[in-house]
């Protein structure tokens, strides 16, 4: 039904040994401008840094000044938050061109985006909005991913979403939808363990079963973050993916579960709000590295 994707072959093959094409199986941190100077001065022992692409689509100044220097010392992941792959409108070609220029400039080991939409009718909503899981949306998402992967000439890791509503129009569950996308487009997966947990609670699903049902061989990176707690109209727990708090114990446990199935996998500590001192984030990264160490030992046994 769909054309074979030029990126499909990379799924079944062994991970590329060239570090240029892969993040190390270590913990990384989201790069925040508050920490630029300290990172350069102290060079913390970390696997990689990740940036939000849209913050760096600027001509010059301190963001590029620091990123260029930090890139000299660390592997880099670029994470897009504005491509709107799930939109029911054509992708923004100018935005793709700007992303291509940024990827060309920094040669990151990984580029990822979201299973979500964030634009409509020329407006940008700065949030990752949900879509129903059915055949028309599947076709659209796959067309957009094919287009983006061809335009950027690289495999994209697609992130599973944190959602607060479901759709009457959905005809398949999220894991089936994502599995089909990976199959059709050859994209990789960014497994956001916090999102899996948040969506699990919000939709009364077992997050372990949701993760186990994903095509885990395609996972190229993991995200860990903190959430906030709210309630729905009946008083049931509703978790909000805020990236504004430490990683919860339940999410660490789910991470350990995921690593048992995945083996060591590059893991990002995400904090975008209430950003604490670098040392606080480094401690969370160290915690992830301990879990990665256990996963490595399990592999060796």
């Amino acid at each position: 039904m769909t054309m074979p994707s030029p990126f499909a072959s990379s799924i079944s093959s062994a991970p590329n040994p060239q570090p240029r094409h892969r993040l190390p199986n270590r913990a990384g941190l989201g790069l925040k401008s508050q920490h630029f100077a300290e990172i350069l001065a102290t060079r913390p022992n970390l696997g990689f840094f990740e940036i939000h692409a849209e913050n760096y689509l600027v001509a010059g100044g301190p963001f590029h000044h620091y990123l260029r220097r930090i890139r000299d010392h660390y592997p880099l992941s670029i994470h897009g938050v504005g491509l709107s792959i799930g939109a029911d409108e054509p992708l923004d070609i100018a935005h793709l061109d700007r992303l291509a220029a940024l990827l060309d400039r920094y040669q990151p080991q990984s580029f990822s985006e979201h299973l979500a939409w964030s634009t409509n009718n020329g407006q940008f909503f700065n949030d990752l909005l949900p879509l129903p899981y059915n055949l028309p949306t599947l076709t659209r998402v796959c067309d957009h991913l094919d287009q983006a992967q061809n335009h950027l000439q690289r495999r994209i890791l697609l992130e599973n979403p944190a959602t607060y509503v479901e759709f009457a129009a959905s005809t398949m569950d999220e894991a089936t939808f994502i599995t089909e996308i990976v199959h059709r487009t050859g994209c990789g997966l960014l497994l956001d363990v916090n999102n899996a947990y948040v969506s699990g609670v919000n939709h009364h699903r077992d997050p372990r079963a949701s993760i186990a049902a994903l095509p885990l061989a395609a996972v190229g990176e993991i995200h860990l973050a903190g959430f906030a707690e709210d309630q729905d109209a009946t008083g049931a727990k509703l978790l909000i993916d805020t990236h504004g708090a430490p990683i919860a114990a339940a999410v660490w446990n789910l991470y350990a579960f995921a690593l048992e199935r995945l083996g060591p996998t590059p893991t990002l500590i995400e904090r975008d709000n209430h950003i604490p001192a670098l040392a606080v984030l480094l401690a969370e990264a160290q915690c992830a590295e301990r879990w990665l160490g256990y996963a490595q030992q399990d592999r060796a046994v």
Partner: peptide, 11 residues
């Protein structure tokens, strides 16, 4: 929709 049929407005 929501699993518990709660009013989706709040969500």
């Amino acid at each position: 929709t929501a699993w518990n049929d709660s009013d989706p407005t709040r969500r």
